[in-house]
């Protein structure tokens, strides 16, 4: 079955992105397909590569990046939500006249239409948030 996943919370403050990750992993291990993982609201904060948790804690961002790489996942960060919260890729940073970008590997920035499209194309949409 094909899932779409919406992650609406950032890492560490709430458990939502941990649960979302564990769900996605279990779905993939179970032979299902994840059509798209869409990061919205504070969920966009999962996508900054400048997170440095202590060595004895999980690295949520790196975990997502690895999952995306291992399974060729489409992980989309909402552009409007990302701009509000300072998550930028190279193109957006340039467009906004900023001096750097911070998006992590495996994530890309796109519009909210990608969320709607994911909901239309998947068999099930599952929402994780606070």
């Amino acid at each position: 079955m094909k899932f779409a996943v919406l992650v609406s919370e950032g890492p560490y403050t709430h458990q939502a992105s941990d649960t979302a990750y564990n769900f996605c992993k279990a779905a993939l291990d179970g032979g299902h397909e994840i059509g798209r993982i869409f990061f919205y609201h504070d969920g966009v904060n999962n996508a900054t590569r400048y997170t440095v948790p202590p060595q004895d804690d999980r690295n949520i961002q790196q975990r997502w990046s690895k999952l995306a790489q291992d399974h060729q996942l489409d992980m989309v960060v909402c552009i409007a939500a990302a701009q509000r919260r300072g998550i930028m890729d190279e193109k957006e940073a340039k467009r906004q006249g900023l001096d750097g970008h911070n998006i992590a590997p495996g994530f890309h920035i796109s519009g909210l239409g990608q969320l709607i499209e994911a909901g239309i194309e998947a068999d099930r949409l599952v929402v994780f948030g606070d």
């Binding site: 919205y40 609201h41 939500a81 519009g111 909210l112 239409g113 709607i116 499209e117 239309i120």
Partner: peptide, 17 residues
Amino acid sequence: YALESLEVVLIGAAFEQ
């Protein structure tokens, strides 16, 4: 959430669902 939900609705309207 209310504001960003409304933003999804407005964008989603283009998909004619």
